[in-house]
Nucleic acid binder design. Sequence first.
DNA 1: CAGCTGTATCGATAGACGTCAACATAGACG
DNA 2: CGTCTATGTTGACGTCTATCGATACAGCTG
Lengths: 123, 123
Amino acid sequence: MSNAKVLPLLEPDVVAPCCPPLNERPMSADEAEVAAKMFKALGDPVRLRLFSAVASHEGGEACVCDISDVGVSQPTVSHHLKKLKEAGLLSSERRGTWVYYRVEPAVLAAMGALLTGAAGASA
Amino acid sequence: MSNAKVLPLLEPDVVAPCCPPLNERPMSADEAEVAAKMFKALGDPVRLRLFSAVASHEGGEACVCDISDVGVSQPTVSHHLKKLKEAGLLSSERRGTWVYYRVEPAVLAAMGALLTGAAGASA
DNA sequence: CAGCTGTATCGATAGACGTCAACATAGACG
DNA sequence: CGTCTATGTTGACGTCTATCGATACAGCTG
């Protein structure tokens, strides 16, 4: 359902739930704690595949039943989706029988900026 | 999509040691294995701070002695720097008494592209 | 050579993490 | 209401990991 907003692309304040680019200045302990959670969420192959499956699905959202074929048991899939949700990378919504997961573009963009900033201009 | 390089510092083929953007298609198991290693390397607060310290240092390189003030013991710092090196994010070089660590821009850019691609255009 | 400083490795330990089977819950449908 | 499917939760278990103290190695300096 749901294609109300198709291209939210990048609004101005959408990019910055966390920290400045890695090369701007040494990260504080608190910043690192926050950012590391997000990176850690993508630091597992199964989670990365689940996330990629959702992100590459139509509209950036997918039913669990569409993406749960990653070679691990159903509880494990549920566990990993929960982790991704806790990290702020996905959001979920129940619609009748199925639960749909959707990517959170803002957080994703923030992580990208963290890296591309550092890659683009090495201090 | 592939070669959108805005910055003169990025050479064309520098970006692609791994995989297409997360939203292009569901990631294969092998791709996920490779990419997850890189994300996992940044998935620890101490490593993230060490990496940021190196990246934000002049020239994108720093002596261990300049960045080892992150609240953990010296062996632990060494351990984390080794991990970052194994993940391909840093390279090291001994110069006399000190060892210098330097960021690997290519890998960093690849990770950024993985994310910004997905953030820019939701499936 | 001897001693000092900077960095890496080793061995041990506590805690986190991925995984599964079993069970619980939510909604659909008869 | 009973049952079936889809998903989440719990508890257990083995493995990985972050951390430290002790120690080894490298290079400077006296």
